[in-house]
Every structure is written in structure tokens, then in C-alpha cells.
Simulated assay, not measured.
Amino acid sequence: MALDARAFTAFESSAHDRIAGRYAKHFAPLTGLALGPLLDAARVAAGRRVLDVATGPGVAAAAALGRGAAVTGLDVSPGMVALAQQAHPGATFRVGDVVALPFPDGAFDAVLGNFALGHFPEPEAALVECVRVLVPGGVLAFSWWDRPERQRVQGLFREVIAELGLPPHPDVPQGHDTLRFSEPEAFARLLRGAGLGGVDVAAHRTTHALPDVEALWRAGMGGMAVTASAIAVQDAATQARARDVLARRAEVYRGPRGLDIPIAYFIGTGRKS
């Protein structure tokens, strides 16, 4: 099914407006696990001009700011941008679409995207735009999730939806595959196709500690706008059943600290010639 890119972007914008506060509180700690490797891959350092696309609440932008970079964050969600600007006044944040970046050629030394790819309905066009605004020799570094069997927050929620037979949210445009770049070769082809050289896709694994199932529920429902929408649209009784299924499936990860959820992701990098 052909994807309506404009409709998908509009859904992403409105959905993230609604969940901005919950995302920052409950899901950003999960995306933050990749920040060190991501910024290292992009060679973020003092004085570097950095663009953080799909910045959300500005977590990666703030980390780059902490390294002394001059940082601009961009997101399609006005609610996320307002939240990021309030939380991180040292950076500049703008509302905008990654396929039409409002910056001149060669404006940045590095472009970051922390778990951004699945939010782009036109990833090839998005990457070309990101490369356009890089200086020659500039670095692009994007993180993205591994497969759900290894990235278990995503995996657990997908399994809950499958077990209960829940249909997609009727407002989510169909035809978008959020797992497309959860394969390293597909990720690498995307980077090379945008004209980048020295492409590398590195796998990373860690765990995310959560005190209980309620924290896991809040993280998933507050952070995965597309996936969790299949649950969020259900009535209260069905949502309660979904939470019970999640609790049962997550029990295998119980440890001394609560739940230790396996997390896996890739960081893809390339350099503009």
C-alpha cells in the first residue's frame, strides 16, 4: 500500500503534540541510552555546529549542547519544540519538516537523528536533505532500533497487540514500515544512497531498568506514538487487558531492581565528501 507521506507527517505531529510531556518524562530516558555513542559517532565537540532532526523534547540537542556545540533542533511537532526550547534555552529549536530543511547548504558540521528514522515517511528524501546541509567532510549520525525480538520495549508492546488481535489506529496512514531500517544492510544502503562515504552501522546492546510494569506501560504508551496507538484507541476494558498481557510477558525480565528490559539499537554514520 502506498503511503500518504503528508498524512503520516500530520499524524506524527498531532500525536507527538499530545504525548510531549509524557514522552519527555517516561520515554526519553530510553532514547537517552544511545546518546554517548551517537554523539561520539558524530564527533560532537565544542564549537561544532550541530543539527538535531526529529529532536522531540531535545534530549540529543541538550547532550550536544553539553559538549559545547552550537545546536539547532528541529521537529514537526510544535508541542515538542516548545517543550525542548523551555527545557534547553541554550539551543535553538524550530518547527519544520526534515524533507524541507529551512537551512542553507553546508550550514552544519554534524547532523544527528536519535531514533528518528521511523518517523520519516520519506526517508530517502530526508537523508538527502540532511546531507545537503552538511559541510564537506561533515558527519551524519543516526540511531535506530534493532528488531523487536532484541529491542524488547517495542517487542513487548507489539506482542500484546498481536495476542489481543488489535487493529491499527484508524487515523494512522497505512503503508509505513517502522522496522525497515532495523536491518543493518538496509540502514547502510540508505546512508550510501544519500551520497555519504565511509558508511558504518554499529550494533549496540544494553538494558533499561524500570521499577515495575506500570513504568513500562507509561514508557510505551507515552513514547511509541504509532505502535501504542493501537492500544490507546481501545476502550478502558481492552486497555486493562493489554496491560495485564504486558505484565505477564514482561515477567521474564524481572530482576533485583524490578524489570531489566533488553534494549538493542544501531548507530549508522557517514561522511559527506
Rank of each mutant, 00 (worst) to 15 (best):
A2F: 13
D4V: 04
D4N: 15
T9F: 03
A10F: 09
A10K: 07
K25L: 15
H26D: 15
P29V: 14
L30Q: 09
T31M: 08
A41G: 08
A42I: 00
R43F: 07
V44D: 01
R49W: 09
T55V: 05
V59H: 11
A62M: 03
A63W: 07
A63M: 11
L65M: 09
L65S: 11
G66T: 01
G68C: 05
T72P: 10
L74E: 12
L74I: 14
D75C: 13
P78D: 03
G79N: 06
M80G: 11
A82Y: 00
L83D: 10
L83G: 14
A87P: 02
T92G: 12
V95R: 03
D97C: 06
A100M: 05
A100H: 08
D109G: 03
V111T: 05
L117A: 09
H119P: 02
F120C: 07
F120I: 08
E122H: 06
A126V: 05
L127N: 05
V131G: 02
G137M: 11
V139N: 00
V139L: 12
F142G: 00
F142E: 02
S143R: 04
S143Y: 00
W144P: 02
W145S: 14
D146R: 11
P148D: 12
P168I: 12
V172P: 01
V172Q: 04
H176D: 10
D177Q: 06
T178L: 13
R192C: 09
A194R: 05
L196C: 05
V201I: 07
A202V: 12
A203N: 06
E214L: 09
L216H: 09
L216V: 10
R218D: 14
M224R: 04
M224L: 15
A230M: 10
V233N: 02
D235P: 10
A236K: 12
A236I: 11
T238I: 12
D244G: 13
V245S: 08
L246C: 08
R248W: 09
R254P: 10
G255Q: 15
R257P: 13
P262R: 07
T269V: 04
G270R: 00
R271W: 03
S273R: 13
